[in-house]
């Protein structure tokens, strides 16, 4: 690791000010991703501002609170395991709890925060190795993954500049649930729908979100979405646990008398961002539950997929994963 300045902030406003003042300064929360990348020198901040103590001034940052409209506000410093084990989340948003528990390991979930996990960076081999070029890490140097090892990389949302997969599980569930990210910057707070929060690589793979430098994620809000009690996260990976998704599906269905009234579908492990599939949702809504319907929705979800040499299997795998998740949710009795 390169040397850097370290400041432990206790006041959120101070933290924002310190980071905003300098391009090379970064927020440090759970550390599970940033410190890893600093060791690799993929990230080389000149200074970090430790935000783990901010909840002393602002307890909501570490709390999960029910909102008057039936939604849920999750403080940005809530740890992944606490969120996964939260009884309200387990009862009303099982897809989120399952996604969290499908990610990483018990130790990492005790460290990783809600805000930090939204910003987890790709596992693309080339991004994580500074000996190799990478447009995301060093714009303009090229993407060696496109003609190299790309089994783990994306088939949706790619560009000729970058095909790196968004690696997370939690964000996929949150995207499906229609979450909103609340951020606080030098100019105050703003709310960003999570589906608009992420950027596909396009010509600028180095830009992954709409977050401006110095903006601190303070909370994620989930809408009430009563039918999300009937939801599920299915993750497929190379071993039974502790591995990133090759494909995953987050699904919530509102089924009334065998017909789908509303649906939420997102895919993970196959796209450059946590991938909300409005196409699949449109294909589902208004129709009677059937295997054929699910297969049609899955075809729609992957309609724009572009395979590379090693990852063509992901297109069919993602379809089947989605069909499986839809099937499981459709067979659940409403809770």
């Amino acid at each position: 690791m390169r040397p850097f300045e370290y400041t432990a902030a206790t006041d959120p406003a101070d933290a924002v000010r310190l980071v905003a003042a300098n391009d090379g300064t970064r927020f440090l929360a759970g550390g599970t991703n940033l410190i890893d990348l600093m060791k690799l020198e993929v990230e080389t901040p000149r200074a970090v501002v430790d935000i783990n103590r901010l909840a002393r001034r602002e307890p909501a940052l570490e709390q999960v609170a029910e909102l008057p409209d039936g939604g849920l506000r999750i403080g940005a410093l809530v740890r992944n395991s606490d969120l996964a084990w939260n009884p309200v989340v387990q009862a009303r948003y099982p897809v989120l709890s399952e996604a969290l528990l499908a990610g990483a390991s018990g130790q990492l979930r005790n460290m990783a925060t809600t805000g930090g996990n939204l910003l987890q960076r790709t596992r693309c081999y080339y991004f994580r190795d500074t000996a190799m070029p990478c447009n995301k890490r060093e714009p303009g140097t090229g993407c060696p993954s496109i003609a190299g090892h790309n089994r783990i990389n994306a088939v949706l949302g790619t560009s000729p500049e970058c095909i790196a997969t968004s690696p997370g599980d939690m964000p996929v569930a949150m995207v499906a649930l229609g979450a909103t990210v609340h951020v606080r910057g030098p100019e105050g707070e703003r709310a960003i729908p999570l589906a608009d929060f992420y950027l596909v690589p396009g010509l600028h793979p180095e830009r992954e979100t709409v977050l401006r430098h110095g903006e601190l994620i303070v909370a994620v809000e989930l809408p009430a979405l009563p039918f999300a009690a009937r939801s599920h996260y299915r993750k497929v990976r190379d071993r039974a646990s502790y591995a990133f998704a090759l494909a995953s599906a987050a699904v919530a269905l509102d089924i009334h008398e065998g017909r789908i009234r509303d649906a939420r579908v997102a895919l993970g492990g196959i796209a450059t961002t946590p991938w909300r599939s409005f196409e699949a949702e449109r294909a589902l809504v208004g129709h009677a539950v059937s295997h054929t319907l699910f297969r049609t929705a899955a075809e729609r979800a992957l309609a724009g997929a572009v395979p590379y040499a090693e990852n063509a299997f992901k297109i069919e795998l993602a379809r089947r994963t989605l069909v499986r998740a839809l099937t499981i949710v459709s067979e659940m009795t409403a809770r």
């Binding site: 295997h291 299997f313 992901k314 069909v323 499986r324």
Partner: peptide, 12 residues
Amino acid sequence: LDKLIMGGGSAD
């Protein structure tokens, strides 16, 4: 699993 998916594993 990719070898099974691409090897003709039956569809769901």
